[in-house]
């Protein structure tokens, strides 16, 4: 039984490149390719591809949108995103929209083959560089403790003044800025330092040694 592949990419060159890469493998058959994503939706029933190689950035229909629609119409079809985007936002979005795999376009033949086979077997496949990128984000994306978040100079200044019992109005007058600006800085401070009120702010100011 051959694995039926559909390719959607707005570049004909890429389609041909993929065809060339997949040509040596006898168990893989490219049943459909198109530069217009909407056509895939129309022809989905006719060709019933097992795996769709899907570009994200296309002029007619957005790859993410297409992914969601294909997954909704035919959940058993495995979708592999094939793109140049490395940002985790795209990866997460595609996976949420039903994609089972995520590959970069500069992938090599073995990786492509492995991805297709994995997804065909109902599992998920992520490019190695994508995996590390996601992992990296999980590590760095951790909620930082308030200590690690640097304050801007203006924020430090305002925090100090708050600790010295200045009112917003007084701070505005002292620093020659508008009351609204002071209020914004204050809100930012409260959020950045994850405190609830002025008492929390003063505590932070003390911790940071702003009060000599």
């Amino acid at each position: 039984m051959k694995i039926k592949i559909a390719i959607v990419d707005d570049h004909l060159l890429v389609i041909n490149g993929l065809k060339t890469m997949l040509a040596p493998y006898q168990h893989i058959e490219i049943v459909f390719d198109t530069q217009d994503g909407n056509k895939l939706l129309d022809e989905l029933d006719l060709y019933k591809p097992d795996v769709v190689l899907l570009d994200i950035q296309m002029p007619e229909i957005d790859g993410m949108e297409l992914c969601r629609k294909v997954h909704k119409v035919s959940p058993e079809t495995g979708i592999i995103a094939l793109t140049n985007f490395t940002e985790s936002h795209y990866i997460k979005q595609m996976l949420r929209n039903g994609a089972a795999g995520y590959l970069l376009k500069n992938t090599d033949q073995p990786t492509l083959l492995k991805a297709i086979e994995t997804v065909y077997n109902g599992q998920q496949y992520l490019d190695e560089s994508i995996k590390s990128s996601l992992l990296n984000e999980i590590i760095t994306g951790q909620k930082r403790t308030p200590y690690e978040i640097p304050l801007t100079r203006r924020e430090s200044e305002i925090l100090k003044l708050i600790a010295e019992e200045y009112t917003n109005q007084q701070i505005a007058e002292k620093l020659f800025i508008s009351l609204r600006t002071v209020e914004t800085h204050r809100l930012n401070l409260t959020q950045k330092l994850a405190v609830k009120n002025t008492a929390g702010l003063v505590k932070e100011a003390m911790k940071r040694g702003l009060l000599d």
Binding site: D9, V14, N16, G17, L18, T20, M21, A23, N106, T107
Partner: peptide, 22 residues
Amino acid sequence: LHDSVGGMLSAVKMHFSAIRQE
């Protein structure tokens, strides 16, 4: 850039990658 050069380079890479396997 994305449409012509980008796509073309990707395609070139794919072809070379295929050739390499052969």
